[in-house]
Write a protein that binds this DNA or RNA. Structure first.
Lengths: 256, 256
DNA sequence: CGCTAGATTGATAAAGGTCAATCATTGTGG
DNA sequence: CCACAATGATTGACCTTTATCAATCTAGCG
């Protein structure tokens, strides 16, 4: 039954490749989680929070899934059997609203978790944006492991708390009327995701950015054009942003 | 040290009353959590998810805190030592932005958790709206308990996942341009919180609603006036809403 | 090298923000 | 108990900004 459902979603045209995660080389292919703990650790900000042992534990019940761009991982309301951790690439969580419009709720990067359902149903849909590798973990095995290993479970609690913060930051962005500010804050979010460099890779389309920021794609275009014209952010190509005027950029995005 | 910080926030003018939760009568005074589990339970939707034993465990490390309206529970960026569960009443989580404006991120009702920090700092501020009783739980004791009792921890994982969904629903609301729809969706959210009755109690001010919906208070006024004029929702008093035209109300709020 | 989906730019109209004034409600003090 | 003060809510006028529609341009990709 599970196989049937998965076959529907990851049909033959997807060219997905499965592999036991545990069978991989011990280091690079294990699940990682990016989040911040409750208490005050030595280092501030997000870091990898799993121990080697926890990674190995997870790997023992995880499967690696390789997906090409724009592949559907799952759709909202479908029966939920697995959770996922992004290993490499980028996916978007979204909902299709009534009249064909789409709202992007989150972009998920390596170390992010998605697919933790409610009442056995996924609450939103997830599609890949770039070529993506995910760890796929049966929810039943995961919850069993949680009960046995409270430390591992705690890492997931940190992670979900962290994702809640991200969603709340997104709320802040969405309440700003000015499209220029929304786009700038969005770029700052991507910047934080990476190393904080002024060079920002935009893996998603302008339309997906618009869907994420609650704007029309035209408004996003005009906002980027204006940021460029004002010498705050340069866009050397469609998929690259470069912060030019750091202080002005900070001023724009320092609304919170 | 903890006492010092708390004294700053809950000073003598607050008239707060402390009481060991465990010393209370066994039933009604224990912490409850409202959320949905990952898997498919028998009943859909939110329910109380803690067992009697788990409630007792929590109660053993919790303190009851009574707060009057508009009392500050904690402020953003302050040192975080305790998490909270709303027992009775209602609080708001918010952030004060640069030029005096305020964004309300969430309203928290009985069974909701707040105060799970990141890196030892609260990420937003929390104030009571109505007279409120909270269970106050030291984070250190809570995390220790988590490691011992994976089942209890799992309930908190459910809860935080559920709060993430709430935040994402809020994102959907915020992306709608029409103020009337935002207000209607907000009312529907409150409706779901309670028993789903067409009679909706509004504990918060219009201004707080505006801050939550990313609107001006004028826009909220106009939206409620229009809903009333159109015979969709009646407002018999400032703090009560009554859904009149159910089908039209559903149509407006059935954007997702 | 042309094709197609995505991105940009322009013009128009609708909707909410803002400023200002009035009304209502709550809480206080006489 | 009432009057008044103060805060919150509502309404109106005007203005800014974005959604929308439409046309053009660009970048990948076969």
């Amino acid at each position: 039954m599970v196989g049937t459902v998965l076959a529907d979603m990851w049909g033959e045209h997807m060219e997905t490749k499965y592999r036991k995660a545990a069978a991989s080389s011990p280091r690079g292919l294990r699940p990682l989680l990016r989040a911040a703990p409750f208490g005050s650790g030595n280092d501030k900000g997000m870091t990898q929070i799993l121990t080697e042992k926890q990674q190995a534990e997870l790997a023992s019940i995880a499967t690696e899934v390789h997906l090409r761009p724009r592949a559907t991982v799952y759709t909202a309301d479908s029966s939920a059997h697995s959770a996922f951790i992004v290993k490499d690439g980028m996916v978007k969580a979204f909902l299709d609203l009534s009249r064909g419009s789409q709202r992007v709720l989150a972009f998920l990067f390596p170390g992010d978790v998605f697919g933790l359902a409610e009442n056995g149903r996924y609450v939103n849909s997830v599609q890949t944006v770039t070529p993506t590798t995910c760890f796929k973990i049966p929810v039943s095995a995961l919850t069993e492991m949680f009960v046995r290993d409270g430390e591992l479970e705690l890492q997931f609690l940190f992670k979900m708390t962290h994702e809640l913060r991200e969603a709340q930051r997104q709320q802040i962005i969405l309440t700003h009327r000015d499209a220029r500010i929304r786009v700038a804050m969005f770029l700052r979010m991507l910047q934080r995701r990476n190393d904080g460099s002024s060079h920002i890779e935009l893996a998603m389309s302008r339309l997906d950015i618009a869907r994420y920021l609650g704007l029309s794609s035209e408004a996003v275009s005009r906002a980027t054009a204006r940021l460029s014209r004002e010498g705050i952010v340069a866009f050397p190509s469609l998929r690259v942003a470069q912060v030019i005027n750091r202080s002005e950029f900070d001023r724009l995005t320092r609304a919170a």
